[in-house]
Amino acid sequence: MAEWHAEWYLSTLSHWLLVGAAMIGLMLATYAVLRRLKVRREAAAGYALILPWLLGFLIWNAYPFAYSLYLAFTEYDVLQPPKWVGLENFKYMFFEDPRFWPSVKLTVLYAFISVPLGMAGALATAVLLAQDVKAVGFWRTLYYLPSVLPAAATALLWRWMFASKGLINTLLSPIYRLLDMEPLMWFADERLVLPSFVIMSFWGIFGANTVILLAALKNVPKELLEAATVDGAGPWTRFFKITLPMISPSLLYVMIMGIIGALQNFTAPLFITTPSGAGTFLNVYIYQQGFTQYKMGYASAIAWFLMVLILILTLLVMRWSEAWVYYEVEVRKKGR
């Protein structure tokens, strides 16, 4: 290795100390100024305490949020100042860009297939683990392990598993021979990119969800289930009429977080090369447009599209959930 370049680290370290000291100084100053302005002691302390977040929100959320909306209507290559082009970016995105719609399709289908599948797997596992299984901790750890792995490592592992002569095809080769078919190419086959990503995500996601759903299952009141048994309800009735409604808020949480996460899939696809005809995940596409092609305006337009898409899909799921999520509080109110 050539040089150690201590100055790289020292300069960041000194900036880090400086910003930290400045932040604490600003908090104290805010408190002093507000007190001088006759603000109540409690309120002044509150404002001072949330100051880091408030500043962060203004600098790193609110301003970038507004500025990227502006950029979405411009052409901007970083070197020249942004040029206003009106709706050009959106026109190109919706009607001309051959890679846009395949990417939307891949991203949305991925979210809507992988999340329910992962939930079903997690729910089944959680139900099994809730049956007074010995050494629950051991099983839980085992199932949780894949979701701890860095996405980069998981992606490389599955690329290797799905390689043309990888483990999956080796294990499937008797079946291939039996059916007299060519081995599947998985990530290299345009039509199999989506299923391959879904299988990979299934392996990685359901551990964390299992933990959440298991905790929810443990919270279902035993008296309710016992009362139902006394009334003659069988195990299936108990599960569908009592357990499932009782854990429905957790299911909704897992579903919404899962969908938001899946729509923003980034690290794994960046490690996995797929044929261009299959499209790519929107986040990756935005990154490519913005930071390898330097079309910052167009990238901002797609980013805004993704945000609106996430918003709409989340709202739709919430709306739909009103039909099946059960909140204890509401029912109690109605009962009164």
């Binding site: 790193w60 970038p64 950029l71 980013a303 993704l306």
Partner: peptide, 8 residues
Amino acid sequence: PWVVTLIP
């Protein structure tokens, strides 16, 4: 989504 604020 983090991409929205990424470029600015």
